[in-house]
Computed example of a mutant assay.
Amino acid sequence: MDKYNFKRPKLDIPKSTFQKVFDGFTLIVFTAGIVHLIAVWGQLPDQVPAHYNAAGEVNRWGSKWELILLPIIAAILAIFMTFLEKHPEWHNYMNLNENNIEFQYKNSVLLLNVIKNECVLLFVFIDYNIVQVALGKAESIGILFLPITLTVMFGSIIFFVVRSIRHK
């Protein structure tokens, strides 16, 4: 199969149970995050944490209206990535051939689903933590936030890339 001239077929890759459950869980957490933000809005000071340094400490304060940006960005990201999940023929592959195309499509769609949900959950967590710091219930996002986030995100990517390479 010539990798430059090959027109990848569009296969119907239905969502696995895991993907449906993960999407549902993320939607529930996302909705709860928005409900929480609405519930505490009146209690928030005008200035809330707007940025954290690598140690998890607040290094910029901004308007509480900036809190609205995180759910908006998360929703746009989720919609876009859900759209891309439906088109695995557009994704990049290293070892695609007639014998493994279905596996590679499923693997790529699952990777995209996991990263999408991790990102949305990350945005919800950050928004929630900003509220906690602004209300004086926490001092920072914590020093472990960055290493844990990077480990989870890159760990997921590495897992699926290795899985793809092993399934030539």
Rank of each mutant, 00 (worst) to 15 (best):
I34T: 12
K20A: 04
V131G: 05
T151W: 05
N5I: 05
G136W: 02
D127F: 14
G155V: 05
Y52H: 06
G42Q: 07
N97V: 07
S16F: 03
N100G: 01
Q104W: 10
E66N: 11
P71L: 03
R60V: 12
I76T: 05
F83W: 11
I79Y: 12
V48D: 07
S16M: 05
V40P: 05
V40C: 05
P45S: 05
A138F: 11
L96N: 04
I165W: 09
I13R: 01
A50C: 12
V109P: 00
M94Q: 11
G33P: 01
S108I: 06
I158A: 12
I115P: 00
L11P: 00
N107P: 00
Y4F: 14
L67Q: 02
L96W: 11
I101K: 04
F159C: 12
F6I: 06
K10V: 15
E85Q: 06
G42C: 02
Q47M: 14
Y93K: 07
F159W: 09
L44A: 08
R8S: 07
K86E: 13
N99W: 12
N95M: 08
H87T: 09
V114E: 03
Y4H: 08
N100V: 01
E139W: 10
F83C: 10
R8K: 13
Y105F: 14
I157Y: 02
D2K: 05
L27V: 08
R163Y: 09
I157E: 07
R166D: 02
A74Y: 06
P45K: 02
F25C: 07
I148A: 12
L146S: 04
L135S: 04
F154K: 03
V40A: 05
E102H: 06
Q104N: 07
V114D: 04
Y93Q: 03
L70K: 06
K7G: 08
Y128A: 13
I79C: 11
T17K: 14
N129P: 02
E118D: 15
Y52M: 09
E66K: 12
N117M: 07
E98I: 14
H91N: 15
G155T: 03
S156K: 09
I157P: 11
L77G: 10
G136P: 01
V21L: 07
I148C: 14
G155D: 04
L112A: 13
I73E: 09
